[in-house]
């Protein structure tokens, strides 16, 4: 065999070994490789189903089973880690009989500098290119969005590609779990995962309180988050546009559209949501509400005492106490006369 042939063979075998290793690591650490997982919450009721668009912030923050019960309707949704209106827009049409649409937003997941890791697996490339053209997006933003597509294709072969920080965190927790098991203790969850409608009482992760974290742990998390942001923080961009399109769609079909605004922890807000950005967020919400008449805005972020650090299990997700309070607050607001259809 020629030198080039031997080199090609060596390279191919090396790639194959790396791919097997990558799949092995992904399986061991239970890396989420499925872009969207369908969930149906609540029992079939007398009312038509509702559609829910919520990332883990909304998934953790609200007991949607209880909301489904109070609506006397099932809630259909898809679990998308870091999902935003851009991704959920693709699923809205899959619930044609919905009469209510919940869209959960926050200063975290409506931030344009944060991309959903599964965007390229959900939104067709052509649609993304068209959206970038419409937005007249600058090259840096377009590059960060478009580079997700080759990454997604390569992840077929190497599911761990581009997920190193999550992997290292998961590995650390997995090792801790193994140590606990070998010591006879029962293992807890290895980190946050979207568990719509599931009671959170059994979930050790959601029992912790951000207010109990040592400052170094908070800093570590903030650094890890900083890495995820690409470009400037903003609330005026493709995510907001997708949110408006979802509301347009709901309005055109005569659906009740409810935008739920979740609170985010103090350390996150202080680090990433400057006062000017907070004003932009308010302006965006006002524009969204004005965009489609009849859009109901539920401001859980303004409920007194709800957004304190004692009610968060990490920088953006609510813990069991916060979840209970937020669910009660949402249910109460839905029952309020102003929110009655």
């Amino acid at each position: 065999m020629s030198r080039s042939g031997r080199f090609l063979l060596a390279l191919l075998v090396a790639v194959a070994i790396a791919a097997v290793g990558s799949h092995g690591v992904a399986a061991w650490l239970k890396v989420k490789t499925r872009a969207a997982e369908p969930f149906t919450l609540g029992q079939p009721g007398s009312n038509p189903p509702a559609f829910l668009a919520a990332s883990s912030v909304g998934g953790y923050g609200i007991l949607w089973d209880q909301i489904a019960g109070s609506l006397d309707a099932q809630i259909k949704t898809w679990g998308i880690a870091g999902g935003t209106p851009i991704e959920f827009e693709q699923f809205q049409k899959l619930v044609p009989d919905a009469k209510t649409t919940f869209i959960v937003v926050s200063t975290y997941d409506l931030d344009e500098s944060l991309h959903c890791d599964f965007r390229a697996a959900i939104v067709p490339l052509g649609q993304t290119i068209a959206a970038l053209k419409d937005e007249q997006a600058d090259w840096n933003y377009a590059e960060s969005v478009l580079s997700q597509y080759p990454l997604t294709w390569l992840r077929t072969l190497f599911p761990t590609l581009g997920r190193s920080r999550g992997l290292m965190g998961a590995a650390r927790l997995r090792l801790q779990e193994l140590v606990r098991k070998s010591a006879g203790a029962t293992g807890g969850p290895v980190g946050p995962a979207i568990k719509f409608g599931k009671g959170a009482a059994d979930d050790q992760y959601t029992e912790q309180r951000l207010s109990d974290w040592p400052p170094a742990e908070v800093l570590n998390k903030l650094v890890a988050m900083q890495v995820d942001f690409q470009g400037a923080h903003s609330f005026a961009g493709p995510k907001t546009r997708a949110l408006e399109r979802m509301l347009d769609y709901a309005h055109a079909r005569g659906e009740r559209a409810i935008v739920v605004v979740m609170p985010i922890s103090g350390p996150y807000t202080r680090e990433f949501v400057a006062p000017e950005l907070a004003r932009q967020f308010e302006a965006t919400l006002a524009r969204v509400q004005g965009h489609v008449p009849g859009t109901e805005l539920v401001r859980l972020d303004l409920v007194p005492g709800l957004g304190v650090d004692e009610h968060f299990c990490d920088l953006v997700h609510m813990n069991v106490v916060g979840q209970k309070l937020a669910t009660e607050a949402l249910a109460a607001q839905l029952r309020a006369p102003a929110h009655q259809p």
Binding site: T160, S164, V227
Partner: peptide
């Protein structure tokens, strides 16, 4: 590279 390579 595929396991520990930085995302961005």
């Amino acid at each position: 590279l595929v396991v520990l390579g930085a995302t961005d």
